[in-house]
């Protein structure tokens, strides 16, 4: 068990190094950071909402979108570079099991996305804090109640987003273990993310009574197979306090994410075990 963990760790370490050296990662990180920073100068377009809400929506939107792109494309690339370049042949001829290889890839990619989320959330925190100071001073002068944001909520959101991206990576790895090409994996992985974002529609439809058992069965399978990625988007509630989020709800979202993550990694490992390299 100890040896197995070590081997997984070494694979993830090299995967992490490979990923952070890619220009694609640097490009998306810079682009997302620019989006977070530009939210300050674009706040005049707040459409009547609070400034902090606009800044948070804009910045977190960039984090969600570019994080998903990174999770799909980078994971597929990291997997297929090993298969196409045949480095997987060298590694899998060693006493390294295929689940260890896949888990190593997962943890390496997840660590990269951890860095991505942490850097952007840190920037977002600084931007929100700086604007909050100005708004508090202005509100005190005007005798109004100032708008604030929650640091604790921001930390909780970082964890939720990281978990959400972990689920996406696990789905992409499960697809990669079956797929033959990088392009197929990226297309199907992207569709899976879109389906995850829209899963709540299927969930709503499932709760409505229908006459068709086939339709009901389809909805039941869809709502179990596809994770609801929208449930992780609690930026407004957690960071700006627009709604009360009970601790139980957060734990439930966390467990649901972990369950999907484990399920897709297990599925990927089972498929990859039988794959001929």
């Amino acid at each position: 068990m100890k040896d197995s963990l070590r081997r997984t760790l070494w694979i993830s370490r090299v995967t992490f190094l490979e990923a952070v050296r890619q220009r694609f990662f640097a490009f998306l990180l810079v682009l997302s950071a620019a989006m977070v920073l530009s939210s300050v100068s674009l706040r005049v377009f707040d459409f009547g909402h609070g400034e902090l809400k606009f800044i948070a929506d804009f910045g977190f939107g960039g984090m969600f979108f570019f994080g998903s792109v990174l999770a799909v494309v980078m994971t597929a690339q990291l997997f297929f570079s090993e298969i196409d370049n045949k480095t997987a042949l060298t590694l899998l001829a060693k006493p390294l099991s295929r689940p260890e290889f896949l888990l190593g890839k997962f943890f390496g990619a997840w660590a990269v996305l951890g860095v991505f989320v942490l850097v952007l959330a840190g920037l977002q925190g600084v931007v929100l804090w700086a604007r909050e100071q100005e708004l508090v001073a202005a509100a005190e002068q005007a005798g109004r109640i100032p708008t604030t944001f929650s640091i604790v909520g921001l930390c909780q959101l970082v964890l939720l987003q990281w978990l959400r991206l972990g689920v996406v990576i696990a789905i992409v790895l499960a697809i990669s273990s079956l797929a033959r090409t990088f392009l197929f994996t990226v297309v199907v992985g992207s569709l899976a993310v879109v389906a995850g974002q829209l899963q709540w529609i299927a969930q709503d439809a499932f709760l409505r009574p229908t006459d068709s058992p086939v339709y009901t069965a389809f909805l039941w399978v869809s709502t179990r197979l596809i994770p609801n990625l929208q449930q992780f988007n609690l930026a407004d509630a957690l960071v700006l306090g627009s709604a009360v989020v009970e601790e139980g709800a957060l734990i439930s979202v966390g467990f649901s994410g972990l369950a999907y993550l484990v399920a897709y990694l297990t599925l990927g490992s089972l498929i990859f075990r039988r794959r001929e390299i």
Binding site: L17, E18, R21, N85, K86, T87, L89, T90, A93
Partner: peptide
């Protein structure tokens, strides 16, 4: 067992 595959390709950054 040790194995050297045909036309080996290793991680270039290492």
């Amino acid at each position: 067992t040790g194995f050297l595959p045909e036309a080996p390709y290793f991680h270039k950054f290492l």
